[in-house]
C-alpha cells in the first residue's frame, strides 16, 4: 500500500548513532564530505572506510539497505568512471579507436568513483539514522544564528515539517484520484509521451485543488492555535547536548586530524 512508503529513507532503530543530537550528525556529515575532498591517494581512504564501517556497524543499518540507496545514482557513477577513464592524459594502456585508456586514467577513474560512492553512502547515512523531524529541528537550530542576517531559518524548518506531515496524505490522495479516474475509463499507462502527459491532467488538476484546500485549512488551523511565526515560540523538546554528543565531537576531530595528516603526507610516511 502507498501509505507504507518510508520517508527520507529513515531506518528505525535505537542505536547510539540514532540517539545522537541531529545537529552533531549534520556537522559530522559535512566534515565527512569535506574530508573526502582532502584525500589525495588511495591510502587516504583507509581511515574513511574504517570510520564508515564502524558507524554502519554501530547503527545497525544493514549494508544491503545502504547499498540499495546507490541504485538510483548508478548511472552517474558509471558516467564519472568513464569520463575519468578516457579523458585523462598519460601512459597509454589500451587503445579503442580514437579512445585511449591510460594508466593514470584508470587510476583516476577508480579514485573518483570511490570518492563518489563514499560521498553518497556517507550522506545517505545521515537520513538513515536521523528521524526526518529531528533533522528539520537540527537544521533550524544550526541555521538560527544566521536568522539575524535575514535567513528564514524557522520558516524553512516549518515548511519541511509540514511537507513531511503532508507527503503521505498527498500520496494517498493521488492514489484515490487515480483510481477514481480509472473507474471513469482514464488510461494512465498506454500511448505515446504526449498522450500520457495529457492523460495526467485529470489527475493533476484535482491534486492541485486538494493541495490548495489543505493549505487553506491548515493555515486556518495554525492561526487558531496561535501560530505567529518563530519569534514567541518555545519548543517541547529543546535540543540539549548530552555526553555522548561530546564524545561524537571528539571522535569527529580525531577523524579530521587523521585525514588531514594523511593529506599532508604525514600519514603516508608511516606506512
Amino acid at each position: 500500500m502507498i501509505r507504507d512508503i518510508t520517508l527520507g529513507q529513515f531506518y528505525p532503530g535505537n542505536s547510539w548513532i540514532h540517539r545522537l543530537d541531529a545537529r552533531i550528525k549534520i556537522i559530522w556529515t559535512f566534515v565527512y564530505i569535506i574530508s573526502l575532498f582532502l584525500i589525495q591517494s588511495f591510502w587516504g581512504y583507509i581511515p574513511v572506510l574504517v570510520t564508515l564501517g564502524l558507524i554502519i556497524g554501530v547503527s545497525g543499518v544493514p549494508l544491503k539497505f545502504i547499498l540499495k540507496g546507490l541504485k538510483p545514482i548508478f548511472l552517474i557513477i558509471v558516467f564519472t568512471f568513464t569520463v575519468n577513464m578516457f579523458m585523462t592524459k598519460g601512459t597509454p594502456l589500451i587503445e579503442i579507436g580514437f579512445l585511449t585508456i591510460t594508466e593514470e586514467g584508470l587510476y583516476n577513474a577508480a579514485f573518483m568513483g570511490t570518492r563518489l560512492v563514499l560521498l553518497i553512502i556517507g550522506s545517505s547515512l545521515l537520513t538513515l539514522v536521523t528521524k526526518p523531524i529531528n533533522l528539520t529541528d537540527g537544521i533550524e537550530k544550526l541555521l538560527s544564528p544566521w536568522q539575524k542576517l535575514g535567513l528564514p531559518a524557522h520558516e524553512l524548518a516549518m515548511m519541511m515539517t509540514i511537507a513531511l506531515r503532508f507527503i503521505p496524505t498527498l500520496l494517498e490522495e493521488t492514489d484515490k484520484i487515480m483510481k477514481a479516474q480509472m473507474a471513469r475509463g482514464a488510461d494512465f499507462e498506454s500511448g505515446n509521451i504526449l498522450n500520457r502527459a495529457k492523460s495526467l491532467i485529470p489527475l493533476l488538476v484535482p491534486l492541485f485543488i486538494s493541495a490548495f484546500r489543505i493549505a487553506q485549512d491548515l493555515a486556518m488551523a495554525m492561526e487558531a492555535r496561535c501560530y505567529r511565526g518563530g519569534s514567541h515560540r518555545t519548543r517541547m523538546n529543546g535540543m540539549k547536548l548530552k555526553k555522548k554528543d561530546g564524545a561524537a565531537v571528539i571522535l569527529m576531530l580525531l577523524y579530521l586530524a587523521v585525514v588531514i595528516s594523511q593529506a599532508q603526507g604525514l600519514f603516508g610516511r608511516f606506512i
Binding site: I133, T161, R165, I214, L218
Partner: peptide, 8 residues
C-alpha cells in the same frame, strides 16, 4: 487530516 501540523 488538514489541521494536524506535525508528523508525530
Amino acid at each position: 487530516d488538514n489541521q494536524l501540523v506535525s508528523s508525530i
